[in-house]
């Protein structure tokens, strides 16, 4: 199976690998997937209190190259966005960006779920109601 150059680039040089301090109220953490499924994604956002914009995003992923690249793309896209903008990130945009083959679409779904989980974690920490998301279709 041939992967796109972009995907390989993200796999070889993933952006924003790391850990944010999850004890901070400005940090939201999403941990999705399971080891027995072969992929676990942890995605974190840090929100600037003054502007309400996401000023930093980090990830760590256990999974295949597509899962790593999907998380790398997601963190790049999150930076500079407001929460309202961030929740609109759709897995299909990641599929297009990385030209994921059909068998790897679940990696992009996982990234979308991780974004939503991180946002809700942030909202919960800050006394806001959690967003209700429809169950992802492809699971």
């Amino acid at each position: 199976m041939a992967y796109s150059d972009k995907l390989i680039e993200h796999y070889n040089n993933p952006q924003n690998v790391g850990t944010l301090d999850k004890s901070k109220n400005t940090v939201g953490t999403g941990l999705v997937g399971a080891p027995e499924c072969g992929d676990v994604m942890r995605l974190q956002i840090e929100v600037d209190e003054a502007t309400g914009l996401i000023k930093d995003a980090k990830f760590k992923t256990f999974g295949c190259g597509s899962a790593i690249a999907s998380s790398s793309v997601a963190t790049e896209w999150l930076k500079g966005k407001s929460i309202d903008e961030a929740v609109t990130i759709d897995n299909m945009a990641i599929v297009e960006e990385l030209n994921l083959p059909p068998v790897k679409i679940h990696c992009s779904v996982l990234a979308e779920d991780a974004i939503k989980a991180a946002i809700n974690d942030y909202r919960k920490k800050n006394g806001m109601e959690e967003f209700k998301f429809e169950e992802s279709v492809i699971h």
Binding site: P14, L31, V32, P35, E36, V40, T61, F62, V109, A117
Partner: peptide, 24 residues
């Protein structure tokens, strides 16, 4: 491993069986 959340948990001594995984 440097980019694996599981490796980080292992190194921090987190019991992976006690984590509620969101299996998908």
């Amino acid at each position: 491993r440097e980019m694996s959340p599981l490796w980080e948990m292992f190194k921090e001594g987190v019991d992976m069986d006690s984590v509620e995984w969101q299996a998908h």
